[in-house]
């Protein structure tokens, strides 16, 4: 094309703009690919190591008394995780949802303070939570599954509150108004209209908090302590969890124990993935349903 001298600089800068655009796009895409590749590598490595040992006995037996021996499994840890995380969820879900309703639906000074505290608690390292429960509870009553549940409760509570409050804010105000205009009270509107509309979003938030709690180790070291020897179902005694058994077996230095730790790691990853996928599925369906 013939171009006058006056248009040349403009075209050159336009071409440069295109080149910059292409370069930026390439860099961003590369970063995304690198991040995904790294994650896949971690997952594949864990799967590769874990699958060597993961089998039916792993899910039905306790570890051998001598960690140097091969064989055995983490059934006591899995049961401990279910009990401890179960108690923590049973406490944090209702309390967290109720607090979030206050935060999002009532407002006021208390709600703002609670919202701020929630953000602080979310940022709190979980070892601090463990130390807190240790100082207040374990020092007086000893290590126990309940103490572990208390620590995980403190980890989960702010997550549940934040997630629920956010979902409640997504519920259109039109629906609240429509309910009030039909003669429903404020409380009735929350119970019958707002919470049902936000239900799948709230469930998603709780599931993500569970996924986070299942993987927690540090606060449990200071509270539930662990118990590699036998299946313990009484939460007033010290208890093992999946995460604690991974830690305990990994640090022994025996190859046999480390093989068990890898199988435990894979189990944990699968559990967390299951919760995350479940949360994701529900979340997608829920938002689509309630917003439209």
């Amino acid at each position: 094309m013939a171009a006058g001298p006056s248009t040349l600089p403009g075209r050159r800068s336009a071409r440069r703009g295109l080149a910059v655009n292409a370069a930026v796009t390439a860099v961003l895409a590369l970063a995304a690919v690198a991040a995904v590749a790294l994650l896949l590598w971690v997952l594949a490595y864990v799967a590769g190591q874990g699958l060597r040992y993961l089998g039916p006995t792993f899910l039905t037996r306790t570890p051998p008394g001598d960690p140097a021996q091969a064989g055995g499994g983490f059934v006591n840890g899995i049961i401990g995780s279910v009990i401890i995380v179960g108690i923590a969820t049973a406490l944090s879900a209702p309390i967290g949802i109720a607090a979030a309703v206050h935060l999002a639906e009532y407002g006021g000074r208390l709600a703002r303070a609670a919202g701020f505290l929630t953000d602080v608690l979310i940022g709190l390292p979980s070892i601090v939570t463990g130390a807190f429960v240790y100082a207040l509870w374990v020092v007086n009553f000893g290590f126990s599954g309940l103490a572990g549940a208390a620590a995980l409760f403190l980890v989960m509570l702010p997550l549940v509150i934040r997630a629920t409050a956010e979902v409640l804010r997504l519920v259109p105000d039109d629906l609240r108004e429509a309910s009030l205009a039909l003669g429903a009270s404020h409380a009735r509107t929350i119970v019958s209209i707002v919470l049902p509309t936000a239900r799948s979003g709230i469930t998603t938030g709780v599931l993500l908090a569970v996924a986070r709690a299942v993987g927690e180790t540090a606060p449990l070291l200071l509270t539930a302590l662990g118990n590699d020897l036998f299946v313990e179902t009484n939460p007033t005694h010290r208890m093992s969890t999946l995460s604690l058994q991974i830690f305990n077996n990994a640090v022994t230095g025996f190859r046999t124990a480390q093989a068990r730790a890898w199988a435990g790691t894979l189990t944990l990853v699968l559990i967390v993935l299951a919760f995350s996928f479940g949360a994701r599925l529900l979340g997608r369906r829920g938002i689509a349903h309630s917003a439209r």
């Binding site: 039109d174 629906l175 429509a178 009030l180 205009a181 239900r199 349903h289």
Partner: peptide, 17 residues
């Protein structure tokens, strides 16, 4: 009052659930 005086809004607001 609101049971005696009903209201319809600008945007339709059927309860989605």
């Amino acid at each position: 009052i609101r049971q005696r005086v009903g209201m319809v809004f600008q945007r339709p607001t059927p309860f989605p659930t």
